[in-house]
């Protein structure tokens, strides 16, 4: 028999509230967004209020008639209105002295594409709420179409691979970097393979959202759209960090700092081989992807070094 330590994992200690969602909700098996959604209220506590959009999260964040899938207050929104609605809520609660942690819970399509303008506006005004974007690099809810968060070479239903088509021809919009340039009070990238890092960032987000705008960019691969074995999803997150495909960092008032250092980043193949969305990529395609990853990481490093 293996000796058991019987010591509770310290990550559990970050939870200040019980599960807020129903046991069974309509999110795909293995979806890391479900994990993000369930952990967020556990960490942020009672007075958090969701503003959600159409997208993968919506069928669960929003109720059906009088019924709800969770116990939190929420305001439903179309894609274009999320940060503005959060602004309205946080301004009003601030005015009447109501404690509230307003959280926008949106996908990358909303954050990087159709809902970008109000996000940028709210960030510029330093509105006091948390904007949480779960990035599954495309419109997964509507069937895996490309968004501007879709990375170069990726096969989606609107950037299909064919006789001529080689997947998406443009590089991913560097959303975390764009948001960094807004100089939010706090921002961070995180993913669920690095739970303690993620949760600490959530806690900091709550605290900092009392002072100004907070942006969280969460890597959240889609087992269905990316064609990943559902059991490997956390592993994909981990490999994304280890290959520098998705570096983990945070920034207070525009000063970036890497929170998880990767000493010897693995080649991108270690990440792409776990999914079929890149399976058509030949050497040159992989090289192009590697180049994108290296460039983005170099830019981040430059800014990190400049900030210190």
């Amino acid at each position: 028999m293996v000796e058991t330590t019987k010591k509770r994992n310290r990550v559990f200690n970050y939870f200040c509230q019980d599960e807020q969602f129903a046991g069974g909700v309509a999110w795909c098996a293995g979806c890391p967004m479900e994990l993000i959604a369930r952990l967020t209220p556990k960490v942020l506590g009672k007075n958090m209020i969701f503003v959600g959009t159409p997208g993968c999260a919506a069928p669960v964040l929003h109720g059906q008639n009088i019924g709800a899938w969770h116990r939190m207050a929420y305001l439903a929104s179309v894609m274009t209105g999320v940060p503005s609605k959060a602004t309205g809520l946080s301004r009003y609660y601030n005015r009447i002295g109501q404690d509230a942690t307003v959280v926008c819970f949106t996908g990358d399509g909303c954050a990087t594409d159709v809902g970008f303008q109000p996000l940028s506006g709210a960030a510029e005004r330093q509105e006091k709420f948390i904007y949480l974007a779960y990035d599954n690099e495309g419109y997964m809810n509507t069937g895996n179409q490309r968004s501007s968060a879709t990375q170069i070479g990726a096969a989606t239903t609107t950037t299909p691979v064919g006789k001529i088509g080689k997947g998406k021809s443009n590089a991913q919009k560097n959303m975390p970097m764009i948001m960094l340039m807004h100089k939010p009070t706090y921002m961070a990238t995180a993913t669920v393979s690095h739970l303690e890092d993620f949760i600490k960032k959530l806690q900091k987000a709550k605290e900092k959202s009392k002072e100004g705008f907070v942006y969280l960019h969460l890597f959240s691969p889609c087992p269905v759209g990316w064609r990943i074995d559902s059991s490997k999803v956390i592993e994909v997150c981990r490999e994304a960090v280890r290959t520098n495909y998705f570096p983990l960092w945070e920034a207070e008032n525009g000063k970036p700092r890497i929170t998880v250092n990767v000493a010897n980043p693995k080649p991108i193949l270690e990440f792409t081989k776990l999914m079929r969305k890149y399976s058509h990529l030949k050497e040159d395609g992989l090289a192009e992807l590697q180049k994108q990853v290296d460039e983005r990481y170099a830019l981040l490093k430059t800014l990190v070094n400049a900030g210190t």
Binding site: G23, A26, I66, G67, A68, W69
Partner: peptide, 21 residues
């Protein structure tokens, strides 16, 4: 279905749950 003029959900009145098992 709704006691109010507009459509609001209320988890205290009806918590939804799926048989995802």
């Amino acid at each position: 279905i709704f006691k109010t003029q507009s459509a609001w959900s209320n988890a205290d009145e009806k918590m939804l749950c799926l048989d995802t098992g």
